[in-house]
């Protein structure tokens, strides 16, 4: 599947991503965590093919990503970017349908329309289908783009041996508590249905609650990876984030969580 092998990305002399090895597998939800400027989004953009690694390689099914046509890649993976500045008056549903009107896909038919409505229902926006995108709130816009990515994966024609990949860059940044759960729950459901899911997440506790594996990045490198129990160590996180944090586990199911430590006089 999609793999970064010793991938390094430099701008000038500054390495934004250094020597990263990471493999996405069907059925697995990986969350990338780490402080601002750690290289999380850059790594994601390398994996989408948007950026090309300075050194190392990004492979999809053993073939370098750069050798794929954009339309062939679009059949395999969908991306939800951090922020999208769309200033043209599309309705929410039309934005979602953009996920299916790209080269290589069949024209929107009744089936695609129905699937688009399903995707809007999944993110809780069915009632706002015909509302103008430019009139939606930040969180609603974010969910529209998630629905667009879901539609792209739902209607793209793929061989059975070619599982799809969903990549999300901070999908919960402007969402309220309930919708954070809706979106990450859907990401996990996608993984359970055999897709590979990768998300850049800022909220460590959300990452621990929904992802199968956490990858902690700092200064362009992977510092730690594994389950939440393996990554959530006081010393490790305090060093990566440069501030004092305490980890603990919740009572009943024993879920690891993180609390920033406030220094009170």
């Amino acid at each position: 599947m999609l793999a970064a092998r010793s991938a390094t990305f430099r701008v000038g002399t500054k390495s934004l991503v250094s020597d990263v090895d990471l493999t996405l597998e069907p059925g697995r939800f990986i969350a990338i965590i780490g402080p601002n400027g750690a290289g999380k989004s850059t790594l994601l953009r390398l994996l989408t093919g948007e950026l090309k690694p300075t050194l190392g390689a990004i492979d999809l099914d053993g073939r370098t990503l750069a050798s794929y046509e954009p339309s062939a890649l679009a059949r395999r993976r969908a991306v939800v970017p951090q922020a999208t500045a769309l200033s043209f008056p599309f309705t929410a549903k039309e934005v979602v349908l953009l996920g299916a009107t790209v080269p290589g896909f069949a024209a929107p038919s009744e089936h695609i329309e129905l699937t688009a409505s399903e995707c809007l229902r999944t993110v809780g926006l069915l009632a706002l289908s015909d509302r103008l995108y430019t009139h939606l709130s930040g969180g609603e816009r974010q969910r529209v783009h998630i629905a667009r990515a879901l539609l792209q994966l739902a209607v793209a024609e793929r061989g059975a041996s070619q599982p799809a990949i969903l990549m999300l860059d901070e999908p919960t940044a402007s969402l309220d508590l309930a919708h954070q759960g809706v979106v990450l729950g859907e990401a996990r459901r996608q993984a359970r249905n055999g897709r590979a899911v990768l998300a850049v997440l800022h909220d460590l506790n959300l990452a621990a609650a929904f992802a199968d594996e956490l990858v902690l990045m700092n200064r362009g490198r992977i510092e730690a990876r594994g389950s939440a129990a393996e990554v959530f160590k006081d010393e490790l996180l305090s060093r990566a984030y440069g501030c004092d944090v305490r980890t603990n586990t919740t009572p009943a199911p024993g879920m690891p969580f993180v609390l920033p430590h406030a220094h009170r006089p």
Binding site: R45, T48, G49, E50, E69, P70, S71, A72, L73, A74, R75, R77, A78, V79, P81, T84, A85, L86, F88, F90, V95, L98, G99, T101, V102, P103, G104, F105, Q152
Partner: peptide, 21 residues
């Protein structure tokens, strides 16, 4: 037509959608 529709979301997004930017 399709490429420009993708461009309205942004060049990176158009690429994600399969447009040869």
């Amino acid at each position: 037509i399709r490429g420009l529709n993708g461009f309205l979301l942004g060049e990176a997004e158009a690429y994600h959608l399969g447009v040869n930017v």
